[in-house]
Structures are given as C-alpha cells and as structure tokens.
Design a protein around this nucleic acid. Sequence first.
DNA 1: ACCATAAGTTGCACAGTGTGCAAAGTTGCA
DNA 2: TGCAACTTTGCACACTGTGCAACTTATGGT
Lengths: 204, 204
Amino acid sequence: MIEQPTGRREQNKLDTRRAIAEAALNLARTHGMGAVTADQIAEEAKVSRRTFFNYFHSAEDALTVSTESFLEHAVNEFAARPSDEPLLDAIIAALAATAQVENLNDCGDLFRLADGNPDLLSTQLLAWERAEARIVRAVEERLGGSATNLYILALVGSVLSCAKAAMREWSSANPVQGSAADLENHIVNALSMLRDGFAQSTTT
Amino acid sequence: MIEQPTGRREQNKLDTRRAIAEAALNLARTHGMGAVTADQIAEEAKVSRRTFFNYFHSAEDALTVSTESFLEHAVNEFAARPSDEPLLDAIIAALAATAQVENLNDCGDLFRLADGNPDLLSTQLLAWERAEARIVRAVEERLGGSATNLYILALVGSVLSCAKAAMREWSSANPVQGSAADLENHIVNALSMLRDGFAQSTTT
DNA sequence: ACCATAAGTTGCACAGTGTGCAAAGTTGCA
DNA sequence: TGCAACTTTGCACACTGTGCAACTTATGGT
C-alpha cells in the first residue's frame, strides 16, 4: 500500500540535497558566513530559490548537514554496542568512533565559522539538541526504566557537552586541518574526566 | 570628558526594555509562540516597530530576558564564592542559588514554550551558550592556568547541561507552577550525579 | 531659565526570508 | 503509451532586519 519510493526519485533527491549543502559550504568558506543568501546558494547549486526552501528552512540550515551526519554516526554506533556493556563505556566508544566520519574537516570548519556568527551557531546548537533527544530515547530503551528521567537527561547532556568541548578544542587548535586521531584523543580525554566526576588531579 | 549617562535616560531605556520583554512574554503565553510577530510586540509595548528592533534582534530574542537574568544570577553567585572552596562545590552552590531568582516561573514557561518551537529553542540555547562562555572565563580566572583548556570547557559544559536537565525536568513535571525548592533539589541532584561520574547506583 | 547638544524614537526604503498555491515538468508502472 | 504520483518552479504575500534622515526629549553649561 505505502509506495516505497523506488531508487531513482530518492537518489535524485539525495543528490539535490547534497548539491545544495555543498554549495552552501563552499560559499560560506569563501565569502564567509553572513554574506551568503539563500538565492546565492540556490544559484550555485543550480536549483530555484523555491526548491532550496523545499530542502532547507534557512541558509544556515543547509550547513548543518555535516554536523548532522557526524551526530547520526554517534547514534548508530551507540545502537550497535553490545547491550551488556556498561553504559558509559558504550557511550565513550560510540563517540570516539565519530572521529572516523568522512567529512570530519567540514565539521571543524563549521565550528570555526559558527563562533563569530550567532545565527549559524544557534542552528548548530539546535542540531546537537536534536541529536541529544535521539540519544536520550536510545538510552531510555537500553536502560528500560531502571534509571530516573533526570539521570538520563543529565548524563546525555553532559556527555554531548564533553564531545562538543572536544570538537571545539580540536577545531580551534588546528585552524587548517586536524587529524582524526587527535580528535579521538580529545573526546576520550573529555569523557574520562566526566567519568571521574571532574576530580582535579592537577590542583590541591 | 565621557558623559556619564545620568539617571533618567538610563532608567527610561531599562523601562522600555522591560516593557517590550513583558509584552513579548504575554503575547507568547496567550497566542502561543510562532503566531507572534515583531509588530504585535511593538504595538503591545507601545513603541514603534523600529524601536523594538533597536532593543532586540528578533521576536524570540525578547524572550531570552528571563533566561538571561537567571543565568546572570548564576554567574554572579559563582563569582561571590570564596576562592578556597573546591571548584565543584562552588559551582553547585552557585547553580543551586539560581532557584532563588524572582521570575523563576517565567523561565519555566519559556522552557515549555521552547520545545515545539525550534526558533525559540535555538535562541534559548544561544543564551545558555553565551552564559557558558562567561562562566568559562570566570573559571579560568579562578584556576589561573592550573587546568587544561579542555578540562574547563568540558566541565562547564557538563555542569550547564545538568542545570538544563534539571530545569527541563522541573518545568515539564510542573506544567503550571513549580516551587523553587523543587528546582533546587533537581539541580543539586543532577550535579551530584555529575560529581559521581554518573556511576549508576541502581543497576549492575 | 534657556539653548546647544547628545541621546533616543520614529517612519521610510530596501534587500532578504519563508511559505502557500497552482502551473509545469519528471518518473514509475501497468 | 499513457496515467498517476511526485518534484520543481514562479509568483504572491506577509514578515524580518537594518541604514538613514527627520524629529523629539533629557542634560548640562551659562
């Protein structure tokens, strides 16, 4: 009954989507965010203005694609962890694995573009927030009621904040390009601090 | 040389600002966010559209005022903690004290309005982000170089995520009004979990 | 008290945003 | 081939956000 969209249509849509996202990223890199309008992106991607808005709700939105694929990667990795593994171990492994995503340096560029441009920053934050909601649901399923709501919300929020901190540190330390291994280190470090309750080893 | 703005001018500006913010909150509560335009807020607050935009950069922006005062409270409380107190204790105390802010229920309403309205949510997230930056600076000063950048970023991010989780839980559990004591409990609970590294006491 | 001036408000113009709608163009399947 | 479903596009329209110039009001010196 439900018409499973057959290959071609879907593929075309994905292509268009990717084309628009790429165009947006190119323009943002060259002209620097804030000087980029929806019309320009549409033109660069060779679609009409209207079509652009069929795919994305704003210019900044078109730039969340890399971030979203990064976060989706995390969600999938987490879902794939064995269910008898301790929760925090599973989470750490899942997030560490995100460093393997292909378009990692796009994400770095995005982080750099985002500070200095509140509009872009807030759409990026929104993307993280949506991912947080998905992960919360995944953790709820995994724990199946054996933890309070507050515990799950606080845990997932903190974990993602650590990942964000790691990305920020990584992207600002490597203004040009960064290695996946470096990022993975930062992520594991930040999450280890979290697991230790941020007990300071360095100070009195 | 520099004309110190004397009483009246400043007071008028603050009054106008407050009037606009109030108008915005009223409209959002009644007509439900998303149906509220800058023009309506301006009219309600009895200023011109143009003046509205002199004070706020968007309709949603006018709603961050309560959130911002909430977070400012946290920053001030933190700055006031004795500097020999352990860092996490100081932070917990500072955030617990935010439950004493006057317009607490406005913040709750805002949280409820924000989910279901991405635009509003993303401006709220931006407000938290700005607060995070301020707190990071305060912590850097307090620690004076005895901790890595990553440590501070991850810690402050996590702490604020816990506070956010507490607010979310509190505001969704009390759709009408919530008590300050309840919120304080949630905040302390969430931060205690953080301090324990989210070791689950409930499960194997 | 009075006026020059700095500060705040307002209307207007203009480029850009985001969305509903209907006309055109594609694609998939019998 | 031809029709049904889907996608793209142009157009219209209300709203956003900002520069600019005219106007109004508070402040401080004389």
